[in-house]
């Protein structure tokens, strides 16, 4: 059965969900999302260390959506960047889920990169980060996967991901980061 975005989203929104957003990811939306996240972390009296980690990870996740979140034509949306972001307070940890559509041919690159990062020790993640940072192939928009390495480094946990088949051209990628 093909992926049902609305069902997937509604199942994620339970009493632990302290922030959720689904929709356009343009400049202004990114600013508003980040501002809301800061308000929530302030209200939660989160420690500066965890606060910064969460904010940093969310900056990277949301900007990934901004740069890579595509809109399948079937959705008939009036904008071209679409993404989902959910933050859950699970008591002992925060779970941040980001989701976006991507064309099927992008699957292998992203899956291989996350799988690779998930096998690395923290020292190896640091070495990979430095290698990509100093690599001329890395551009402002990314491309070298520095954002995803940074997320792994800051969270210190493996990323959980799912590729869900939407139609013959598009997949939906969801990534969970635990802090």
């Amino acid at each position: 059965m093909n992926f049902d975005l609305n069902q997937w989203y509604s199942e994620k929104i339970d009493e632990d969900a302290i922030f959720y957003y689904k929709g356009c990811i343009e400049d202004q939306n990114v600013t508003e999302i980040l501002s809301s996240i800061e308000d929530i972390l302030h209200k939660n009296n989160e420690s500066p260390k965890i606060y910064k980690k969460i904010f940093n990870v969310i900056v990277e996740l949301v900007q990934n959506l901004y740069h890579h979140g595509e809109v399948p034509p079937e959705l008939s949306l009036p904008y071209s960047k679409f993404g989902v972001l959910i933050m859950r307070d699970e008591g002992m940890q925060y779970r941040i889920s980001a989701g976006n559509f991507l064309k099927i041919d992008g699957l292998k690159l992203i899956r291989d990169r996350i799988d690779q990062i998930n096998t690395l020790s923290s020292d190896e993640t640091q070495s990979l980060y430095r290698l990509i940072l100093n690599n001329d192939e890395f551009s402002e928009k990314g491309g070298g996967g520095l954002g995803i390495v940074d997320i792994a480094r800051k969270s210190g946990n493996n990323m959980e991901y799912q590729f869900l088949e939407y139609n013959e051209s598009y997949l939906f990628l969801s990534i969970d980061v635990i802090i």
Binding site: Q63, L133, F138, E140, G142, L146
Partner: peptide, 13 residues
């Protein structure tokens, strides 16, 4: 810096 993202990290370099 309080925060910087990875796209800024390249520019800082």
């Amino acid at each position: 810096l309080e925060y910087f993202n990875t796209s800024s990290s390249k520019c800082l370099l």
